[in-house]
């Protein structure tokens, strides 16, 4: 079901990529090799807004930097040699991290990671292809609410992480930081700054443990 949703959010990415002047091959290449939805979104939205490609890559890479933060979440759950880990790195995304880290059993977590990774890659690419085709034949993508699809998908990913009080505090502080940072910092930076919200969240978690 998660993978089907990723196919659905692949549509608006494909439409946007088309309007940014990417060819079908280029849009699909990004989906396979970059394989980081929000980075791809940031890239094509800056380019389609008339921004220069170098600035677009910079913003997209700032967003991709958070994938480095997911490594320590997922790697303790994975087994295997250097090659397997190198392949696993490519499948490190918001979605695979969310799925693997929400399983209690390590075997389930590993299965969830690989299964989610492969399924998402397939549907993400299929969604991209459909989106580019749609973009070539659509006058006003906004009329279909396509720009709401991606943030809505992240709302669904967020839900299991706000089950605890520490999680809720972290999420609220992170959102507040992002809100202040959007008008004042370059694209991508608000997301990285929001990582600081982990501090208050850890304080809440520590206070709960101590009497």
């Amino acid at each position: 079901m998660l993978a089907v949703a990723c196919g659905l959010i692949g549509l608006p990415y494909g439409v946007l990529a088309d309007s940014a002047g990417l060819t079908m091959a280029q849009a699909v290449a990004l989906s396979v090799f970059t394989f980081a939805g929000s980075s791809q979104f940031a890239f094509v939205s800056v380019v389609s807004g008339g921004g220069n490609p170098a600035a677009a890559v910079g913003g997209a890479l700032l967003l991709a930097a958070r994938n480095a933060l997911y490594g320590p979440v997922v790697t303790p759950l994975l087994r295997g040699g250097a090659f397997r880990r190198a392949v696993a790195a490519q499948f490190l995304t918001d979605e695979t991290t969310a799925m693997a880290s929400s399983q209690d059993d390590p075997t389930d977590a590993r299965d969830a990671f690989w299964f989610t990774g492969l399924a998402i890659m397939s549907f993400w690419v299929a969604g991209t292809v459909a989106g580019v085709l749609l973009g070539e034949n659509l006058d006003d993508p906004g009329a279909w609410g396509l720009d709401a699809a991606f943030p809505a998908a992240f709302v669904a990913l967020l839900v299991p992480h706000v089950a605890t009080r520490a999680g809720r505090v972290t999420a609220l502080v992170g959102a507040a930081i992002a809100l202040v940072a959007v008008p004042t910092t370059p694209v991508g930076a608000p997301i990285l700054l929001a990582a600081l919200a982990v501090g208050p969240g850890m304080a809440v978690a520590a206070r709960r443990r101590s009497p």
Partner: peptide, 22 residues
């Protein structure tokens, strides 16, 4: 571990907010 447990909450909520209003 204590940091990575909370990171998704911080990053996902910031992503939702920036994509919904930025």
């Amino acid at each position: 571990a204590p940091v990575t447990a909370l990171l998704p909450a911080a990053l996902f909520s910031a992503l939702v907010l920036t994509m919904a209003v930025a």
